[in-house]
Design a protein around this nucleic acid. Structure first.
Lengths: 110, 110
DNA sequence: TCTTTGTATTGCAATATTACAATAAATAAA
DNA sequence: TTTATTTATTGTAATATTGCAATACAAAGA
């Protein structure tokens, strides 16, 4: 199939999986890290920074933009990208809730 | 292609992406949540809990096991699954470092 | 031993992802 | 207007993912 049965899961579960998917590629991790490091930059800078072709970077940027993690502003011929702080806080909070667990009982398996 | 150029990224970036990929499906999110809720259970319980076929659940379990997030113990005919606490703490710590960012300067884009 | 029970594996179909060459599109500069 | 410059889009090839039916496998019970 190659397509997940989203309808049998909760909204929360699908949202978590969706954000995780956006982070599930090293190029997108690298893009995010670079944007945090230098605050904002244009597409071409990311092409130089990361070693992938321009259309590939553009594609990864599109995906990050689609889920709202980054935003792009047209500046003449170039497009300036940066992190969307509100969305990032949302992602952070969602992951924090998911990741923070209690292991008092869970330490032994079966 | 369908295959990422892992060699041009750092070990950390690939690790982050790898863990994110493991969480990038609602069924695997559901499996993890259920394991945390009831501590440990057999494959069949997860098949009933989540609405997917047994081979599909088995496949998702295999992927979570491969990356080390869960562990399985054979108990007669059934296999008991639970979270691997050490690995989970590692994932939690890795994501925390990645997600926790400073927005003092980053608030305005371009 | 034969049957049942529970899980893993195999094989397959449908779809998604990754990467890039070629090209389009849009603005700036000459 | 013509020519860069920069980014997005399109098309395509290779591979990966998702899901399940069929089946294999392994241990327990009759």
């Amino acid at each position: 199939m190659g397509l997940s049965k989203t309808e049998i899961f909760t909204e929360e579960q699908n949202r978590m999986a969706g954000f995780a998917k956006a982070l599930a590629h090293p190029a997108r991790i690298a893009i995010i890290e670079h944007l945090f490091k230098i605050n904002a930059c244009i597409c071409g800078d990311l092409v130089n920074e990361i070693g992938l072709a321009q259309p590939t970077i553009s594609q990864h940027l599109k995906e990050l933009k689609k889920i709202g993690i980054i935003q792009g502003t047209v500046e003449g011929t170039s497009v300036c990208y940066c992190i969307n702080p509100e969305k990032w806080k949302e992602v952070e909070s969602l992951f924090n809730t998911f990741l923070k667990r209690d292991f008092e009982i869970a330490d032994q398996c079966c």
